[in-house]
Design a binder for these strands. Structure first.
Lengths: 184, 184
DNA sequence: TCAATGTAATTAGATAATCTAACTATAGGA
DNA sequence: TCCTATAGTTAGATTATCTAATTACATTGA
């Protein structure tokens, strides 16, 4: 869960909003000489934007009493519902987190009856994880809002901007996934 | 801290990588009719990209034993070092988190001698917070790497792409900050 | 002037998402 | 059959949040 600090008595005394420029000045002073300042500026804004997008989505999902990580996992299960075997290990591998972290997520989701864990007959060490009917229902309730929030992020771009933007985003994301060794 | 799961015995059995298309199919099936699918697609990739960027930066900062939130706060203090009064309240206000959360960050930073808390003479309820010499030193050690990581995020774009991208990013970020009521 | 109320900061206690290390149970090979 | 690898969980920790309660100081108005 995150943000939405509501009230808590508004402070009189406030810090002035500095905007971007002091960050850029600081950058000029402190960046190594082989760093391209324009690129760094761009990267910085992307970082900020990423933060804001995450916040946005979190706020949105909070209404459904679920977090992005958990929705992520439910979607993963949803898209692999046809697989004979989906284990906590393979989930961990895919999400780039530890098995124990997956266990924690699964416990939470199971408690809410959103997933089911079944022993795997062919190998007694393994567990098959699948999304439950209730889980699917929840996902189907969430998704329309989720997509519309996604769309709203880029609403104000015109067709042409969107086209260029899309090309660039896909490129950047692919290269980052490669660097991080992650990916869907 | 985050990622870098290192080893933990590579799993034999893996989930197939599905790529983007099943997400798009799911979107087509589940988006409300007034959601623009192209926009939603774009937004979704931005969300993923934002996640990846965060991870990237986290990994980077881990080497300095600090997190993004804490660096953020140190930078804020750095840029307001000339202010007579910087209180936990005003910091909370600016970062969009609760005062108690700021207290927690400050305790950690103070323990490491990166900041100093001084009672404010003109109003006994308030505390002035400033970055310490040690804090400044750390920031100066971190920033070159930080900027270079930022730059590396968009390295593979050519000049023209960067130009368009920059315009779009600034626009989107501004509108999101407005919607969220945040901002630097 | 002093009691009531407002504000600043902290503390207490909770939740979420992660980690490492240790443990249990099963599988499979020498 | 015993040893070791693997799957999953548990135990215990950290980070970043939150809300509610507490403490201490400030202000104000009868």
């Amino acid at each position: 869960m995150k943000r939405k600090p509501a009230k808590e008595y508004t402070t009189e005394q406030q810090l002035p909003k500095l905007g971007t420029s002091p960050y850029l000045k600081l950058m000029e002073r402190t960046a190594s000489s082989d760093t391209n300042l324009n690129s760094a500026h761009l990267g910085l804004i992307m970082l900020w934007l990423g933060d804001n997008i995450l916040d946005m989505v979190d706020i949105d999902l909070a209404a459904f009493d679920i977090t992005e990580s958990k929705l992520d996992l439910l979607l993963l299960l949803s898209l692999h519902a046809d697989q004979e075997l989906v284990t906590p290990s393979s989930i961990a591998d895919r999400l780039g987190i530890r098995r124990s972290s997956v266990t924690a997520l699964l416990i939470w989701l199971e408690k809410k009856n959103l997933i089911v864990r079944e022993p795997y007959a062919k190998d007694g060490r393994m567990t098959h994880v699948r999304i439950s009917a209730e889980g699917s229902t929840l996902v189907n309730q969430i998704l329309p809002t989720f997509w519309s929030t996604c769309a709203s992020l880029v609403d104000e771009l015109d067709k042409e901007e969107q086209a260029v933007f899309q090309k660039v985003l896909v490129k950047l994301n692919a290269s980052l996934e490669k660097r991080l060794g992650s990916g869907r």
